[in-house]
Amino acid sequence: MSQTDFESVEELLAGEVLGDLTDDERTQLSRLERQMPVDVNERRRDLEHAAAALSCVAATPQSRLPDELAQTIRQQGYQSLRQPRSQRDQVSSQTSAVSEGTVRPATKAPPKSTTTSMRELIAWVACAAALLVAVGLYASSQQKDAGPITLTSTELYQDLLQRKGVSQIDWSPGTTPFDNPVSGKVVWDNEKQQGIMQFVGMPINDPTVEQYQLWIIDPERDEEPIDGGVFDVTASGEVLIPIDAKLKVVSPAAFAITIEQPGGVVVSTQERLPLLAPVES
């Protein structure tokens, strides 16, 4: 069979799917099918599923594709649109696959836009549908592998403020207060063991010289305070710092900020304790 015969089968199958074949065209399709060296029923099923596949992809919100993958798909689409009809592959080469997280687009090119018929278009759409389904599967797998969503400090702060049963404790001067007053608060969700510190006017530190460290005082757990994380203040104004408790907090009595050597300490002498947030009983 000639390349023209293969293309004719492709378009007639598409017309069959669309339901607009004439009697003569049905006769022609039957004749060509008998002459085909391969079974065209698989291709017929591809075309029948194309519309459904496209509908599913269009109706299902997908994750944003990585920029590199999106650019690759766009470039291939532009190249395909420019490809002459004489360079199209035969029916048997119209496949696309997803394996080991890799998308391999179909190589079938659509007809030139100036001469595109509905039948030719739907034949190409079948290949495009396979690509879109592959992309959908890729996005879905990326979502599943992404793990839990990480909130920004601002998002976490706003989220904590909306929760019920969350403690909000204002900062007050410690045993060695800053020269200028610092305001803000601790927001702590003991049930979920999540919290954040808000500071306004906190002095910017040089992390090569000293760092801030949070301590969570919890007598019900231990006499020694819990390390709540070492942190830096790199900007003036309002600063939000997530709490990184190294142990489970049972019943916090107070939150304290000390100034320590770079990297923090395991046990603090609390010689420099500028801020304290006592929890009211």
Rank of each mutant, 00 (worst) to 15 (best):
M1D: 13
S2N: 13
T4V: 07
D5Q: 11
D5K: 07
E7W: 13
V17I: 09
D24H: 11
D24V: 12
E25L: 10
R26F: 00
Q28A: 10
Q28C: 03
R31I: 02
E33N: 11
R44L: 15
D46W: 07
L47A: 09
E48G: 03
H49S: 14
A51Q: 14
A53F: 03
C56N: 11
A59L: 12
T60H: 01
Q62I: 05
P66E: 10
D67W: 02
L69D: 03
L69K: 06
I73G: 02
I73A: 13
Y78L: 14
Q79E: 15
S80Q: 15
S80H: 14
L81F: 08
R82I: 03
R82G: 03
Q83W: 06
Q83D: 06
S86P: 02
Q87D: 14
Q87N: 10
R88D: 11
R88I: 11
Q90E: 11
S92T: 15
A97S: 15
A97F: 13
V98Y: 08
G101A: 14
K112R: 12
T114N: 13
T115R: 14
T115S: 14
L121I: 01
A123H: 07
W124M: 00
A126D: 10
C127G: 07
A129G: 12
A129W: 06
L131K: 04
V135A: 11
Y138C: 08
A139H: 03
A139P: 07
S140N: 12
K144G: 00
D145R: 15
P148T: 08
L151W: 01
T152Y: 02
S153G: 05
E155L: 00
E155G: 02
L156P: 02
Y157W: 05
D159H: 00
D159N: 02
Q162D: 12
R163N: 00
K164A: 03
K164N: 06
V166Y: 00
S167P: 00
I169E: 03
S172W: 01
G174I: 05
P177W: 08
F178P: 05
F178E: 09
D179N: 10
N180S: 13
P181H: 05
S183I: 06
E191R: 04
K192P: 01
Q193W: 00
Q194N: 15
G195W: 01
I196W: 00
V200R: 08
G201P: 10
I204Y: 07
N205T: 09
E210T: 13
Q211L: 03
Q211W: 01
Q213I: 03
I217S: 06
I217Y: 04
E220Y: 03
E223Y: 10
G229Q: 10
V230A: 02
V233S: 07
A235I: 12
S236V: 04
G237A: 08
L240I: 04
I241P: 05
I241L: 02
D244P: 00
A245P: 02
A245L: 03
K246T: 03
S251L: 05
S251A: 07
A253N: 09
A254E: 05
A254S: 11
F255V: 01
T258S: 15
E260T: 14
V265R: 09
V266P: 02
T269Y: 00
T269E: 12
T269I: 06
T269M: 07
E271Q: 14
E271Y: 04
R272D: 12
R272V: 15
R272N: 11
R272L: 12
V279P: 04
